[in-house]
């Protein structure tokens, strides 16, 4: 199975919430197919019994005590908001 055969660009773009132009779709599909072909090489590697590396230096139980600290003021929290009202972020009406 060559990876590029089932690279359904529309499905992926939808998951990524990224609008692509028809030209971008054609271009990206081709470029990604190239990259994926290169990546296919990984299938040659015998990984039997190899643990995946999620962290270069894993340690356990990195946490903080449950002590509340001051956060942002509403002004700072909303300073970069594209649209706000009543100290809340405005978005197009969400239906669900």
């Amino acid at each position: 199975m060559a990876a590029n055969e089932d690279l359904n660009i529309d499905r992926i773009a939808n998951l990524a919430r990224l609008a692509l132009t028809p030209e971008e779709k054609v271009k990206f599909s081709a470029q990604l197919a190239d990259v994926l072909t290169n990546i296919e090489k990984l299938k040659q590697v015998d990984v039997t019994g190899v643990e995946p590396t999620a962290h270069a230096f894993p340690v356990y139980n990195v946490w903080a005590d449950d002590v509340a600290q001051a956060g942002l003021t509403v002004e700072d929290a909303l300073r970069n908001a594209p649209e706000k009202r009543d100290n809340m972020i405005v978005v197009p009406k969400v239906v669900e």
């Binding site: 990984l42 590697v45 990984v47 643990e51 995946p52 999620a54």
Partner: peptide, 8 residues
């Protein structure tokens, strides 16, 4: 698989 090869 990439994470496993990363280990190697």
């Amino acid at each position: 698989r990439a994470q496993k090869v990363r280990t190697l």
